[in-house]
Amino acid sequence: EVPFKVVAQFPYKSDYEDDLNFEKDQEIIVTSVEDAEWYFGEYQDSNGDVIEGIFPKSFVAVQG
């Protein structure tokens, strides 16, 4: 069931425009499960802007 919160276990950096880049310990709200390997989610950056994109499930852990 979406949405749910995950926390980055590792930093994720990608050159693909659709990917969500983040640092370790970033909290991310997952709004869609793309497939067995990928989530789609969002978070607010330090400027208060909402950043969204896809990212690999293996880089995050589900909270709770």
Score class of each variant (00 low, 15 high):
D35C: 13
A61W: 10
E27D: 05
P56D: 04
G53N: 03
I28Q: 00
F40Y: 13
Y39N: 00
G48W: 03
K24W: 04
Y12I: 00
K24D: 02
Y12S: 00
N21W: 12
D15S: 12
S46V: 12
F4W: 03
N21D: 05
K24M: 08
T31H: 06
N21G: 05
D25T: 05
N21I: 06
I29P: 01
D25G: 15
Y16I: 12
I28F: 03
I54L: 15
A61V: 14
F22T: 01
E42Q: 14
V6E: 01
W38G: 00
K24C: 08
I29H: 04
F22N: 01
I29S: 07
F22M: 03
D25N: 11
L20K: 01
D15M: 12
S58L: 07
I51V: 13
I54R: 15
V62F: 13
L20E: 02
S14H: 02
V50S: 06
V60T: 05
A36N: 13
I29A: 03
E42H: 15
V33F: 07
V2R: 06
L20S: 01
D19K: 13
D45N: 12
Q44L: 14
E1S: 12
E27Y: 06
K24I: 08
K57L: 06
Q9S: 09
A61C: 14
V50W: 13
D49G: 07
F55Y: 01
F40Q: 05
Y16D: 12
V6P: 01
A61P: 02
G53A: 02
E23G: 07
K5C: 12
D45A: 11
Y39A: 01
D49C: 14
D49P: 02
A8G: 03
S32D: 06
E17M: 11
G64M: 12
E23N: 08
K13F: 12
N47E: 07
K24Y: 05
V6A: 05
Y43Q: 00
F10N: 06
A36F: 10
Y43F: 08
F55H: 01
D18G: 15
F10K: 12
V6I: 03
T31Q: 06
D35Q: 07
V7G: 02
Y39L: 05
Q26K: 03
P11Y: 06
G64F: 10
E27Q: 08
S46D: 11
T31E: 02
G41Q: 02
Y12E: 00
K5E: 04
Y12A: 02
D45K: 10
K24E: 06
S14V: 01
E34K: 15
S58G: 07
Q26Y: 03
A36Y: 08
F22L: 02
E27F: 06
F4P: 00
T31S: 05
F55M: 00
Q9Y: 07
Y12D: 01
Q9D: 03
E52I: 10
A61K: 14
P3E: 02
F22W: 02
Y16M: 12
V7H: 05
V2N: 04
K5S: 08
W38Q: 05
D15W: 09
V2W: 05
Q63I: 15
V60M: 02
V33D: 07
E37A: 09
S58K: 12
Q9F: 08
D25F: 10
K5D: 00
Y12C: 05
G53W: 04
N21Q: 10
Q26V: 05
D18P: 09
F4I: 03
D25Y: 11
F40W: 11
P56N: 04
V50Y: 07
K5L: 11
F4C: 06
V60L: 02
I28P: 01
W38H: 14
E17W: 09
E17Q: 12
I54N: 10
Y39G: 01
E23H: 06
A8S: 08
E27C: 11
D15G: 12
E23R: 05
Y43E: 00
K13G: 04
F55V: 00
G48Q: 02
D45G: 08
W38V: 05
G41R: 03
Y16Q: 13
G48P: 01
I28V: 04
V60E: 02
S32M: 09
V6R: 00
A8V: 02
V7M: 07
Q44D: 03
I54M: 14
I54C: 15
E34I: 15
T31K: 09
A36H: 11
T31L: 10
W38K: 07
P11F: 06
E34S: 11
F55G: 02
Q26S: 02
E42L: 10
F40M: 08
P3C: 10
A36S: 13
Q44W: 07
I28R: 01
Q63L: 14
P56G: 03
D49K: 14
I51P: 00
I51C: 13
I51L: 13
P11G: 09
G53E: 00
A8L: 04
S58E: 08
F10A: 10
E37Q: 09
F55T: 00
D45H: 07
D45S: 09
E23F: 06
V6D: 00
E1A: 12
Q63E: 11
D18V: 11
E23K: 06
N47H: 09
E52L: 08
G41T: 03
V62P: 11
D45M: 10
V60S: 02
D19P: 02
K24T: 07
E52N: 11
E34W: 15
Q63N: 09
P3V: 05
V6M: 02
V6S: 00
S46R: 11
Q63W: 12
K5R: 12
D18S: 14
L20V: 00
I28H: 01
Q63T: 12
Y43C: 06
V6C: 08
Y43G: 01
F55A: 01
E37N: 13
P11E: 09
Q63K: 12
G48L: 05
E52V: 13
P3W: 07
K57V: 08
Q26M: 04
D35R: 09
Y16A: 14
T31W: 10
G53D: 01
G48F: 05
G48S: 03
F4G: 00
Y39V: 03
Y39P: 00
N47C: 09
D25I: 03
V2S: 05
F59G: 02
S46H: 12
V60N: 00
V50H: 09
E34G: 10
E17D: 11
P11T: 13
I29Y: 07
F40K: 12
D25M: 07
A36G: 13
P56Y: 06
Y16E: 12
S46K: 13
G53H: 02
K13T: 09
Q9M: 15
G48H: 04
N47Y: 09
V60F: 04
E42W: 15
V33L: 08
S14W: 03
D25S: 06
N47S: 09
K24V: 10
E34Y: 15
Q26G: 02
E27H: 07
W38S: 07
L20F: 09
G48I: 01
F10S: 07
V30L: 03
F40P: 00
E23L: 07
F10Y: 12
T31Y: 07
